[in-house]
């Protein structure tokens, strides 16, 4: 039980806590945007922390680099998927309120069309 193993377990337990938080958020939040918020922010940091933990746990150079690459891929693609889902559900008018005080994104979408 060296210090390295303890640090690895610390990262893994932190990732597990974040994942549990994600699940609670997915169940408890009311509509699609807040659920996306929960899954994007918390699940990304959970996956990155888990990859850090495993990379410290195995502690061989090439293997750790491969695992960190997996974490980097998560860090790039998970917010990307979240952005695509949020934009698609905004354009489909899924779970949009009837009356809005601020709606900046529609202007942006019209500008993006041209």
């Amino acid at each position: 039980m060296t210090l390295r193993i303890i640090i690895a377990y610390f990262f893994m337990v932190g990732a597990m806590l974040f994942a549990v938080t994600t699940t609670v958020g997915l169940i408890r939040f009311p509509d699609v945007y807040t659920r996306i918020h929960a899954s994007a922010v918390v699940l990304t940091i959970s996956a990155v922390m888990l990859s850090f933990g495993i990379a410290i746990y195995v502690w061989q150079f090439y293997l750790s680099m491969k695992i960190l690459l997996v974490g980097l891929i998560f860090l790039i693609t998970n917010p990307l998927a979240t952005h695509a889902i949020a934009r698609a559900s905004y354009r489909r008018q899924i779970a949009c309120p009837e009356v809005r005080s601020v709606d900046d994104y529609s202007d942006y979408l019209e500008r993006d069309q041209q």
């Binding site: 790039i76 990307l80 952005h83 695509a84 934009r87």
Partner: peptide, 13 residues
């Protein structure tokens, strides 16, 4: 196609 962010990111990936 999809939005600008997705296009650029997949251009890198």
């Amino acid at each position: 196609g999809l939005s600008f962010i997705v296009k650029r990111t997949f251009g890198m990936l």
